[in-house]
Amino acid sequence: MFIRIEKGSSVPISRQIASQVRAQCLAGTLPAGARVPSVRELAEMLTVNPNTILRVYEKLTSEGYLERRHGSGTFVALKPPLSQLNGQRDKFEEELGQLIRHGRMLGLEAAELRAAFEQALDNANISGSHPQESQGETST
């Protein structure tokens, strides 16, 4: 498991770690059932407070990304946490809202924003197609 911590970032450390583990679970870099480092091991690897790692593991366990098996460690969940997608979608919508407010601030009218959105959709080449198709290109 490779995780990169950016010190002095405006993104809190716990969020940096959690989002990288989530991404690796979803991308399959961390395969289902794989054992992840213990709290202590990861704390030492990343030089991050073990309490922070513990909180991240607890959060990811409650979200269904990880499973803690008593006595044997922490593992990537066998079933992907589809229920969590709702939470992720809420977050996406919130970010989109921020982006739109930003556009309004720059003086873009509703019609211009709509056009920009359509253009972005076209560029991403996913309008109308199933997201599955583009996965090969976008997964990292």
């Binding site: 911590i5 010190k7 002095g8 809190p12 450390i13 202590r40 704390a43 030492e44 990343l46 030089t47 991050v48 407070n49 073990p50 309490n51 922070t52």
Partner: peptide
């Protein structure tokens, strides 16, 4: 982390290097 935090010690320290503090405190 290894000799203090993992062993449940209470650590009180001063610093002026804020980006070093965040991952630890």
């Amino acid at each position: 982390i290894m000799h203090l935090q993992s062993e449940g010690r209470t650590v009180f320290y001063s610093s002026h290097l804020l980006y070093e503090v965040e991952p630890i405190a």
